[in-house]
Nucleic acid binder design. Sequence first.
DNA 1: ACCTGAACACCGTTCAAGT
DNA 2: ACCTGAACACCGTTCAAGT
Lengths: 204, 204
Amino acid sequence: MARRNDHSREELQSMAIDAARAIISQEGIEGVSARKVAQKIGYTVGTLYQSFENIHDLVLHANAFTLSELLAELDVAAGASRDPQQRVLKIAETYLRFAEGHERQWAAVFRHSLPRGHIMPDWYQARVDALFALLENALRTLAPRRSRQSIQLASRTLWSSVHGICILHTGDKLFSDSIASPQALLQSLVKHYLHSWLNEGKSG
Amino acid sequence: MARRNDHSREELQSMAIDAARAIISQEGIEGVSARKVAQKIGYTVGTLYQSFENIHDLVLHANAFTLSELLAELDVAAGASRDPQQRVLKIAETYLRFAEGHERQWAAVFRHSLPRGHIMPDWYQARVDALFALLENALRTLAPRRSRQSIQLASRTLWSSVHGICILHTGDKLFSDSIASPQALLQSLVKHYLHSWLNEGKSG
DNA sequence: ACCTGAACACCGTTCAAGT
DNA sequence: ACCTGAACACCGTTCAAGT
C-alpha cells in the first residue's frame, strides 16, 4: 500500500489540526487521540507521526489556533474603547466571553501539559506573549508616566487575576453565579485595582 | 483464589489513596493509573473497583486529602496575624507557598476533571467551600459593616485573583519571575484592591 | 517518499470463576 | 464476601514492509 499523495504535507497537517479542534470542541481535550484524529482525516495513525512529533505536538498546534482566535478578538476589543480605563475592562470582558463561548477550546489551552522536560516552542510562546502585551499596552496608555517595571507588575497582576476569575467560573463552577456573576467580579477587580494603582502614581 | 482479607475495606481504601498521592507527588496526575495503584498496594485492579467507583473517584479522594492539608495551613495563617489586612495577605501568601511546595498535588486538584455529567460530591464540595469561607471571614472582620453580598463579591474576586496568580506562576511559568515575583503580584493585588474597596465603604 | 498494518506496552472497566 | 485473572475496547508510538 501507500503512495496516496492525495494531500501535501501542509494540507495533511492542517487537516489533522482541524480534526483535533473539532474533537476538542465536541468532547474536550480528553477526547483527542491519535487514532481518532487519523480516522477523521482518512489516514492511518502512523501517517500522523510524519507530521507531528507526538500527540502533544498536535494538541499544541490546535491550542495555538485557539490563542490566535482569542488574540484577534482581544485586538478588536482593545481598539473599540477610547477611554483607556474602559479599554482594560473591555479586554477583561472579552477574555471572559471568549472563555465562555469556546469553553472546551479554552480549557484545552490550560489543561494541556507538555511531556516532562519539554519546553514550549517559540512559535507558541510568541502567541502567549502577544496576549500579555495587549494588556500591557492598554496600561501604558492609561498611565504613560509610570515606569516599565511598574506597568509590567500591574499588567501581570491584572492579567493573572482576570484569568483566575475566568478559570474559576468556567468548567467546574466553584461558586454559584447567582450571587456574583463573573462580570461583576471582573468589574470589581478592574475598578478597585486600577483606582488605587492610578492614585498611587499621583501621590508618589 | 481470593479471600485474603489482609486488610479491611477501610484500610484498603486509605492504602489506595496514599498510593495515588505518592504517584501524583512523583509523576503528577498523568502518572496515576488503576493498575499502578493496585500494584503499589499489592492487589489486583479488580479489587480497586470494590472500593472506588472508578479512577476519577480515587483521584478525587487523593485531591480531597490535598485540600485538607491546604485548609489546615491556611487556618494557621489566618490565625497568625492580628492586623486583618495583613491576614488577607498572609492567606494569599500561604496559598502560594502551598502551591509551590506541593506543586503536583496542587496541580492535580485543578487539572482533574470529572467524567462528563458527573457532579462534585458533597464531601468534596464542603472542603472547597471551607477554603472560600476562610477569606470571606477575614474580609468580614476587616469590614464588619459591609453587606453580606458586598463581602462575598470582594472575597470571590480576591480569591479568584490570588488563584490566577498562583496558577500562572506554577507549572507552565508563563512569565519570568525575575521581573515580577509572584509574591510581588500578590502584594500588589491585595494592597490595591483592598485599598480602594475599603475606601469605597467609607465614602458610600 | 509516502503510507499501511501490525506490533508493543500500556490504559479503564467488567465479571465469571475460584476460595 | 472477597479477590483474581482474563477479557474487551481502547490508548501512544514505532517500524518493517509494501508501492
